[in-house]
Write a protein that binds this DNA or RNA. Structure first.
Lengths: 339, 339
DNA sequence: CTGAAAGCGCTTACAG
DNA sequence: CTGAAAGCGCTTACAG
């Protein structure tokens, strides 16, 4: 490994000067700069980043903590994160926890050990007090998640409004018996989506039948299983709103298997707008989250915090969009007669 | 930030001893160890990893270079990589190149800059000479890819045999007019799958109709578009083998849209066995790659190289499996009469 | 089993 | 515009 002192010697300058040239510091004589650059090139010098990170007390790396890398939902967020990180010469360390709380904590520890400069949390399973505490001593941004009642920096959509709109879409199509498959209710965004569903029914004076609300776990299988139960009763719902697309796909699978049709017999709405939505039949109506943007803005926010810049807003709410495809059909006269 | 010297002072030992205790070095008096550990706890000391990495000349981090993080194919590999890395206290840096060659090179540079100790390449788009050169001066392992003719450490399946088996599966079901959608032919594993297809036809004395071989790009859309062309001719193929599952899904979409049935009119085989295979209708017959295992073994290999251990084998070929589901149907008498 | 001392390869006030 | 010098916080021969 050739080191900076060798470059300095060859260019007949001090290491201070070499360092300044390489970090684009101002006030370098153009002639000196050239000489250094030539020496760098002729020796094929690569700076030792371990040394420079140590000296600068910064790893120029952030860790993204996620519950499960195999969940396609996060990939666009990660892409956004890395794109913005790259622009500032930051790197992204992978913090897949596999839904393991202990690992989640370990990744947070990495900031204390200076291995990373900051933290993006796309999952917040550990107690919110711990997240709050972490956010007070280190740069932390929540992406998609948020902590109710605290102002931990956050980038997400308004899950309540989004879920209300999705539900109202079904109501507007004439549905009154609308089932809802929640996400795991320990997660705040699952609760929010449930709230949005309830609000829509309330606002439209539709009776809330608690038996039509069932807790899923965001997997295709849970959507399938729960829908099978919905279909087992005498008069099944005419629409199902699932808290994510995978569960919606499971619902479609169950419905078809039981010999019903989507959307003619039962309408389906999902949430997230993952690529799968365009592949299932019928194509899935869903709430699109701007995941790439969420990633970009979360990283922008984090880098600001790391730099010590002030934040104009600590909570950024990005727009979602009801993406209407084929799984809800049109408003049918038939349906109105039914009721 | 409390530092090691403060711990040393409180425990009334030297920093050498603190360092030894924390790194579990042998020959520490139990009593001393306890004293140090107490001091560490009472001061809530966290070692500065930037300092320790620098001093030890190791970042305990490897970078995984991948063409596109939003491609679900890689997620299981990454999961395997990180799981094994974790066991050795290694971290994984995300190297999403977005199919950008320049970025691919930049991630390789990180090893030279000591920011990472080694490299997992799941994509090898840069000239193979460069990869070979890199592998000679730094720890590199190829996952899924390999470099023909060189012994760069590799973990992958045998794509030729796998593709041959998939093709033979169709032949055994009575198909003779089997179309093949390749991956991008600049990639060696795409060529291998094509070779396997050709071998199967050759071995079974089936005429190779070059018009039935079309180059795709691994996207659903390309599978769809190419299949549309296959279907436009007077006597379309009775089976289509796509070089990955996404293209197979695109093929199914096109076939259904044209009013044909899968598998009754046209049988489909994919490659990879991503979760989507269980969701499409009909469920997709495909070649399953042991992606998690590929990730695990690639990381094991890389860590051995980093440690300086010798490798028993530099090329590991893992078993694939023909996963038979519903997209090929059964051998039909009808088909035999047709021919 | 433990400590004193050197040093990893940079960056950064400080001085000029 | 440039250099000498200090020092970042650890680890590791070396000596005892």
């Amino acid at each position: 490994m050739v080191k900076m002192s060798e470059v300095a010697k060859l260019a007949k300058v001090s290491t201070s000067t070499v360092s300044r040239v390489l970090s684009n510091a101002p006030y370098i004589a153009e002639e000196t700069r050239q000489r250094v650059l030539e020496a760098v090139k002729s020796l094929n010098y690569k700076p030792n980043r371990l040394a420079s990170n140590f000296r600068k007390r910064s790893s120029k790396t952030v860790v993204v903590v996620l519950p499960d890398i195999t969940n396609i939902f996060f990939s666009k967020i990660i892409q956004g994160l890395q794109t913005v990180a790259k622009e500032s010469d930051y790197h992204v360390l992978l913090g897949d926890t596999g839904n393991n709380l202990q690992l989640e904590k370990e990744f947070i520890e990495l900031v204390k050990e200076r291995l990373v400069d900051g933290l993006i949390l796309t999952t917040a399973r550990i107690p919110k007090e711990e997240i709050l505490a972490a956010s007070q001593i280190m740069p932390v941004v929540l992406a998609c998640e948020y902590i109710d009642g605290y102002d931990v920096p956050t980038v997400c959509i308004d899950n309540i409004i989004a879920a209300r709109q999705a539900t109202e879409h079904l109501i507007n199509l004439g549905h009154k018996k609308i089932a809802f498959i929640t996400g795991p209710l320990g997660i705040i965004l699952s609760k929010d989506r449930l709230d949005g569903y309830r609000q829509a029914l309330l606002l439209n004076e539709i009776f809330i039948d608690e038996s039509l609300i069932q807790e899923g776990d965001f997997t295709v299988k849970s959507g399938y299983d729960i829908t099978m139960k919905f279909l087992a009763v005498e008069s099944p719902p005419t629409a199902i709103f699932a808290s994510n697309d995978e569960m919606a796909v499971g619902a479609i699978k169950a419905i078809k298997q039981k010999g019903f049709r989507v959307p003619e017999d039962i309408a389906i709405v999902g949430f997230d707008d993952i690529p799968l939505c365009n592949i299932v039949e019928p194509e899935l109506t869903t709430i699109a989250q701007p995941r790439y943007d969420i990633g970009c803005q979360a990283m922008e926010m984090l880098l600001k915090i790391i730099k010590g810049d002030s934040l104009e807003r600590r909570q950024i709410v990005l727009p979602h969009k009801l993406e209407i495809r084929d799984s809800c059909g049109y408003k049918l006269e038939r349906r109105e007669e039914d009721e």
